[in-house]
Design a binder for these strands. Structure first.
Lengths: 228, 228
DNA sequence: ATTACTATCTCACGAGTAC
DNA sequence: TGTACTCGTGAGATAGTAA
C-alpha cells in the first residue's frame, strides 16, 4: 500500500476544506491547480494518483468530476496533522545550558549582599540569594550560543543603584532549575568581568553543598522559556 | 524569500520533536535520515537547504552538528499545521442529497399511518410523521452515490411488524434538514419498490406546504453525520 | 565514525495538445 | 469549456566516495 505522498497533502487539504469529506464536491482540475498553486496538469495527476491509491473517489458527470475523500484519505490526513501538531507541542519550553563549575572571583559574595540588591531580590525573586555566585564555564559552542540567545528573552530585572561613592549595574535573573533539582537563577550582569563563556548562578541555598558539587563538576541549568 | 518546501516539513517536524526549538540538539545526518525514512544524503541536503533558507541554525562541534530551529522555522511549521488542522475541522458533518419532487405512489400515507409504525415513530423520532412520504428523484450520480453511502451510517431503526395477515419491513430514519428549513427525516425501507435513485422524506408537517413546493421542485436534504 | 561532494536516476511539474 | 495524454526539464533522492 503506497504511502500518501507529501506533495499530495496540500491537495487533500484543499479538497477537505472544500467539504469533500462526506459529499462529492465538483472540482475542476484548473481551479484545483490554482488553489494549490500548481498547474492544471499537476492537479489532474494528483487526483489520478490519489484515486489510484484509494485516498479519494471520483464520479464523472459529463466532463466534470466530483470528488469525495475516502475514510482512508481522511485518516491519513488526520495522522499527518497530528504528527505536526504533536511535534509542535512536544517541544520543551526551556533552554538548557551545561558547563563545569569554576571557582568564582570571590567578589560575588560581596556584591550580592549589598542592600541595594538584596532588597530587590527579596521583592522580585522572593528570596535573598546565598552569598556568592556559582560560576560555570561553558565549553560547548551550542551552550554559549544558548547563553547568547537568553538575552532576547525576558528576565527579572534587578535595577542598578548608587551608594554615593559609586554606581552598581543592573542584574537580570532567569529563574531555572539546577541539575534538575535545586531552584535557582541564572544571572547576567550589566558590568561583568567575564565573557559569554561563563555564566553565574544564584540560589537561596548553597548550591555546591545542596547538590554535592565541587569545582570541575558538570552542572546543568534549565531556564523555562515563555513559548511565544 | 523561498518557501518552505513540502518535502522538508517532516524533517522539520522530526527536529522539532527532538526538542530543537530552543536548544541545539546533536543530530547526525544518518540518524535523521532514518527518522524521516530517507537516505543520509537526503537528510544532509535537507539540513543544508533548511539552513540556507533560514529555517534552522547549525553549530559544528567536531564532525557532528547541533541543530536548532529558528523562529521563522517554527512559525512556518505552525502555519502548515494550522492549515491542515483547520481543513480537517472545517469539513461539514452532514451529507447533502439533492433531487426533484415526484408524486409518490400514494401508498406512503397508508403505511406510515399504521399503528405498528406510528407508535415507534413517536417513541424514537419524537413525532408521528405527516401521512405520506415525499418522494424525491435523484438525478446526479454524486447524490445517488451519497444515498448509497448512507447505508453505512447509523440511523434510527423502526422495526418491522406483523398484523397477523402480513408482515411489514423495517424503516430506517436519518433525521435531517429539508431545504435548510424544515426538520424531517430521510427514510430507507426494507421493502421498497423504488431503486436507489429515489429517496423518501418524512416530517411532522406537510413538507410540500411548509416549504411551498410542488412536483418538480428542486429539494435538498442535509443529513448530519457523526464524524468518526 | 562523520558531512557532503559528484554522479545518476526517478519522478514531479508544466507546456503543448488530443479528445 | 472539461480531462489527461506525451514529452522535456529540473528538482529530489540515492550510490559511491572524498575528506
Amino acid at each position: 500500500m503506497p504511502d500518501l505522498k507529501v506533495q499530495h497533502v496540500l491537495t487533500l487539504a484543499e479538497l477537505l476544506s472544500k467539504g469533500a469529506r462526506h459529499n462529492f464536491v465538483p472540482v475542476t482540475t484548473t481551479s484545483l491547480g490554482k488553489s494549490i498553486r500548481k498547474s492544471q496538469q499537476a492537479a489532474s495527476k494528483h487526483l489520478l494518483e490519489l484515486e489510484r491509491d484509494g485516498y479519494i473517489e471520483r464520479i464523472r458527470s459529463g466532463k466534470k468530476f466530483s470528488v469525495r475523500i475516502t475514510a482512508k484519505g481522511h485518516t491519513e490526513m488526520a495522522r499527518i496533522s497530528s504528527i505536526l501538531k504533536s511535534s509542535l507541542e512536544s517541544s520543551p519550553s526551556y533552554l538548557e545550558l551545561k558547563g563545569n563549575i569554576i571557582s568564582g572571583m570571590g567578589e560575588g559574595a560581596y556584591y550580592m549582599s549589598m542592600k541595594g540588591y538584596t532588597k530587590q531580590f527579596k521583592e522580585k525573586l522572593g528570596y535573598v540569594p546565598f552569598p556568592g555566585t556559582l560560576n560555570v564555564k561553558i565549553k560547548d559552542k551550542e551552550f554559549s550560543e544558548a547563553r547568547r540567545s537568553l538575552d532576547t528573552y525576558d528576565g527579572i530585572m534587578i535595577n542598578g543603584f548608587s551608594d554615593g561613592k559609586r554606581t552598581y549595574g543592573w542584574v537580570k535573573c532567569y529563574p531555572g532549575k539546577i541539575n534538575n533539582s535545586v531552584d535557582g537563577a541564572l544571572i547576567t550582569l550589566e558590568r561583568t568581568h567575564y565573557d559569554d563563556s561563563i555564566i553565574e548562578l544564584i540560589s537561596h541555598t548553597n548550591i555546591k553543598k545542596a547538590a554535592k558539587l565541587s569545582n570541575g563538576s558538570q552542572i546543568s541549568v534549565k531556564v523555562p522559556i515563555k513559548s511565544k
